[in-house]
Nucleic acid binder design. Structure first.
Lengths: 218, 218
DNA sequence: GCCTGTGAAGCTATTCACAGCT
DNA sequence: AGCTGTGAATAGCTTCACAGGC
């Protein structure tokens, strides 16, 4: 037990902070120096109270008259979310989805950058996809070590996912975005974020139907 | 206010039910007739109590000695999640991500099926991508009506997303999976499921760093 | 007057724990 | 003995509401 109980930030808060950051960085005219919680809220699609509560976590204070200083808030968010240095990622599985993710993430983003891709198919090794070099899976440990990358995006089909995750963990990876659609078993000090595309579709199918029903009840 | 307060199922529960369904349908040897909550739990990466609580929602009862009847449970889940009939979807935005999603979803899935794709780029109209016909955006309303499709997957870049959503809503869509990375403004009777790839990456970047820190504190 | 920061209340979701069944 | 179904307790997250500042 530590002296001062460390209160880690809610998952949802981190997700929203990521949205706020993008709004501040991209959607805002450069002439805007200050922004109010309700302005940020309406752009992010959440409540003003939620924005203020979330920003408490990052410790950047607003001014009751003018709101939050945009430039300073953005710096706080970047440091808070990604740390002072650029975080390096690797992508495992250069199939249809993997290639789409490469095209999606290879542009810009100074604080998060995909530095290498891997595929079990030896035919893909050596190719450069959307500006990212593709390596054979066997080189994973070596490349991760050389690049000092500790985060991975896993987008290979379910059957091979656990084995790939094991290799990643063994190579020192601390966090995985898992697109495989099955849960991964990893040590408790490795963070896994599951993105399940099938589930997203099924949720929409369910709640869209449900809305129609509840609308007719109410 | 309705006579009996309708208690709608938790979002998280629906997401997990979708996972249970896939486990039952795909990962299970056909010889297995009954399954216990703790078995399903370990395959899905959740607790046994969670599984039992979730299954209360669908109303399929288990037997204390043998567990849940697999075949019957699967039928309950399918009916509960997607309804008795196949749900049709359309996909808007046949870019890198859109094509990857088409290849991901065009195989099988009897209860959810993508019946058409749309793109603003007229050059893509008429092409067949991963077995799915691509139409110009202007035909959206017509095709949706002809196909009787009420669900959409939106994967076009942020700038055009809201306009596309408006068109979808006008064409009678009841649910949208939104990959655009910005919140959509839609009527309250339309359900939107946001899938934010950038946020997923940033969450991993954050919590992976945090785990390292908390590990050294504890 | 309108804003921020935040305790307190309210709501949602998960885990505990145990009665009842086989 | 070991499982299910479920009330009760707990944990996690969001909204309310208001004191304090500009």
């Amino acid at each position: 037990m530590s002296q001062i109980a460390y209160k880690h930030p809610p998952q949802r808060t981190i997700a929203r902070l990521s949205v706020y950051r993008r709004i501040l960085a991209q959607d805002l005219e450069p002439s805007v120096d200050f922004i109010h919680s309700h302005q940020l809220a309406s752009r992010a699609g959440v409540s003003a109270a939620q924005v203020r509560r979330d920003l408490m976590q990052v410790g950047c204070l607003g001014n009751p008259r003018r709101g939050y200083p945009v430039r300073q808030l953005l710096d706080c968010l970047i440091t808070f979310l990604s740390g002072p240095e650029c975080q390096k990622l690797v992508l495992v599985g250069v199939g249809n989805l993997g290639q789409a993710l490469l095209s999606y993430f290879m542009g810009g983003r100074s604080h998060l950058s995909i530095v290498a891709a891997f595929d079990a198919d030896a035919g893909k090794a050596g190719r450069v996809v959307h500006g990212c070099r593709c390596h054979p899976l066997q080189d994973l440990k070596k490349v991760l070590h050389d690049e000092q990358a500790f985060l991975a995006v896993l987008c290979i089909p379910a059957p091979g996912a656990q084995a790939a995750a094991d290799t990643l963990v063994e190579a020192g990876v601390r966090g995985i975005v898992n697109f495989a659609g099955i849960p991964l078993s990893v040590p408790s000090d490795v963070y896994v974020e599951n993105v399940d595309l099938t589930t997203s579709l099924e949720k929409v199918a369910f709640f869209a139907r449900e809305k129609v029903q509840t609308a007719s009840i109410a």
